[in-house]
Design a binder for these strands. Structure first.
Length: 206
DNA sequence: TACGTGATCACG
DNA sequence: GTGATCACGTAA
């Protein structure tokens, strides 16, 4: 009984499909600052407050979907509300949330978290000596959260990976914008101020 | 500042 | 097939 009640409460705070399926990926990237990314992998729950994101739109050159559908990016073309996970530099898993409507292949890259639950699990996965800095970067946080290719295409309404609103208040002025990292190939689009971070957070990547 | 790392993509 | 490239992280 008690267990059931808890389940219902938890599912209620999950961000709904309607959050992800809006048109404005830049707005969504901003709103994701302060939300909580959660994974449950092999029964181990980990979570963290999102403190850094980047927006990507299929209309600009920084985006994997800019040149159309390929084997790697196909889940970006699904309706918003699924995870897009890909391998970068042969080593690092990167996690995005797909947004917008089907075929409007926008996504938000999750770049950094402040750890909440399961910190001991994150330390174990990364073989770090402490929780310090283990989620301050897109490649590091996926390792800490246990995110890999098996998450690619999963619905964020499911029970493996999702995002919650825990009513953390983030004032508009508390969010910094800057250019996105590592997309020099994007020409002028590399100058778009589509990276967002929580001002003053020690968990933001360098 | 340098480079490991391996899947992916655009060539033919 | 093949080769260039890559939404990073760490060591130095």
């Amino acid at each position: 009984m008690r267990r059931k009640f808890r389940r219902i409460r938890l599912s209620k705070v999950k961000l709904a499909q309607s959050f992800y399926q809006r048109q404005n990926v830049v707005q969504i990237a901003k709103e994701l600052i302060g939300k909580v990314l959660v994974t449950s992998v092999n029964g181990l729950l980990t979570s963290g407050v999102i403190v850094e994101t980047e927006a990507y739109s299929y209309k600009e050159r920084g985006c994997h979907a800019y040149r159309g559908l390929t084997g790697r990016n196909k889940v970006m073309f699904e309706p918003g509300g699924v995870a897009y996970v890909y391998l970068c530099y042969g080593i690092h898993q990167m996690v995005n949330v797909v947004t917008n409507q089907r075929w409007k292949a926008d996504a938000v890259l999750i770049r950094a978290l402040r750890p909440l639950e399961g910190q001991d699990v994150m330390i174990g996965r990364t073989r770090a000596s402490s929780v310090k800095k283990i989620t301050s970067g897109p490649g590091k946080l996926t390792r800490a959260m246990g995110i890999g290719q098996n998450h690619n295409g999963l619905s964020l309404q499911g029970n493996e990976i999702w995002i919650e609103d825990r009513n953390v208040q983030v004032p508009r002025a508390g969010i910094a914008d800057s250019t996105r990292i590592g997309i020099d190939y994007a020409g002028d689009d590399a100058r778009l101020p589509w990276r967002f971070s929580l001002k003053g957070s020690e968990w933001v990547s360098k």
